[in-house]
Design a protein around this nucleic acid. Structure first.
Lengths: 232, 232
DNA sequence: GTCAATTTTATTGTCAACAATGCAGACCGC
DNA sequence: GCGGTCTGCATTGTTGACAATAAAATTGAC
């Protein structure tokens, strides 16, 4: 079940989007990788029109960049865009936790606790796909529980952006944040401590961001290719 | 020049989006109004495929709702969605003015002052189309000056949403906010007073929101039809 | 041997005809 | 006369073929 499902769209299109996203966060599709419409169509057993729809959605989400008459490739966000994305997430997520502090019911807390438990389980059994999915879902779950539909939709695309950035700039080792920080955020929410919740969220975001190697040294793959003039 | 231009898309598509948006904010297209693809294609001298692209974009912006196999109509955001939209705008715009307080150059201030002057000019000559455009552009200009590309993109779609809401729930008289509140926000930015800037922005948003008649009494046109079983 | 112009090829963008779907009105049984 | 079903129509959704475009390869001149 694609957690980035743009609910309203065709099921096939969602699947294509999800698979591409997954390939990116799992690093089997590198930033800059070319995405040929016809190939994708064959891979997914879909028509080119469907693939095109999917690519258009992924472009809006910032996962692929779409150059007219040149086709699509996995986007290569630079340092500035990376900072922008985390900054935007922080802005929105701080508001969400604040709201949740005020309005969370016992059910909400329980739901979140159960989610963190799933995260920990996935973490323990080294299921990296589940870890990645659940880790992102935690933030979306907060948005969902506050009932802020719009902010949730926005946060979803931001999450997609940051997951690309993470795959691009983060060393293989630390695939995704452990569930501990999520638990701390949840503690603050349960204690109805808005200030602490905001601070924990800020800490979490900062952690995500500083774990990256955003120094100029990290050159995206495709730029490397262009720079080295490879002879395939 | 469409201020909601989704830069990267076809020019014709942008034009269609813009004209539909304009018709909505000018209240010549009511919420719930049906948008037949073929008609639009003829009106704009475009093919159905192009119209379809435009409608898809407008759906993402929340201006039209797109029901599978049933076609498109102008969206009818309810009270909850309206509050959500303003809440999201406030969240983002407060962050933007805060950033601008810290980083605004004299050039930035001058640009904004010039913009407010244009707004006032449009106001004085009762040019309602210019007023609407410029009024929205002020907020986007702030985003642009902070250099936050992402937040600007997000804010653009939020602005589209709120302009629909305004057209839907605001009495004809107060077509758009006068330039005075924008000037006050700008004053605070120039004084580098973050707190005041945030407060002025909050005040501005609240003003926009409370000017609406969000009471249940205001029933969208199409819902009225459905409720009254008209006999055309 | 290298550079520039030209042809070739691979890929995307566009379109117009066709298929599928849902809705309205007519028809039939009750 | 009322409820349900069935057919015809209006509208959207899909597809495959074709046109436009940019990159790559080839050729020819210097």
């Amino acid at each position: 079940m694609p957690w980035l499902s743009h609910a309203t769209h065709n099921e096939v299109v969602n699947q294509i989007c999800d698979r591409i996203w997954l390939a990116v966060v799992q690093r089997s599709l590198r930033p800059g990788a070319r995405l040929k419409e016809e190939d994708l169509a064959e891979i997914f057993g879909a028509t080119r029109a469907r693939v095109r729809q999917a690519l258009s959605i992924l472009e809006q989400d910032g996962l692929v960049s779409l150059v007219p008459n040149r086709g699509a490739c996995i986007a290569e966000p630079d340092i500035g865009e990376a900072q922008d994305a985390f900054s935007a997430r922080l802005c929105i997520e701080q508001r969400l936790v604040t709201r949740l502090c005020r309005m969370a019911t016992q059910d909400h807390i329980a739901t979140l606790r159960a989610h963190v438990a799933s995260e920990r389980a996935a973490h323990d059994r080294q299921d990296s796909e589940a870890m990645i999915r659940l880790s992102g879902e935690f933030h979306l779950l907060i948005a969902k529980l506050t009932g802020a539909d719009l902010l949730m939709k926005i946060l979803r695309t931001l999450t997609i952006r940051t997951s690309l950035i993470t795959a691009m700039y983060q060393p293989q080792s630390t695939q995704s944040c452990g569930p501990d920080e999520h638990a701390r955020i949840l503690d603050a929410i349960e204690a109805r401590d808005e200030g602490r919740a905001r601070a924990e969220m800020a800490h979490h975001m900062q952690h995500l961001e500083t774990d990256l190697h955003l120094d100029e040294g990290t050159i995206p793959v495709s730029q490397l290719h262009a720079a080295l003039k490879p002879n395939p």
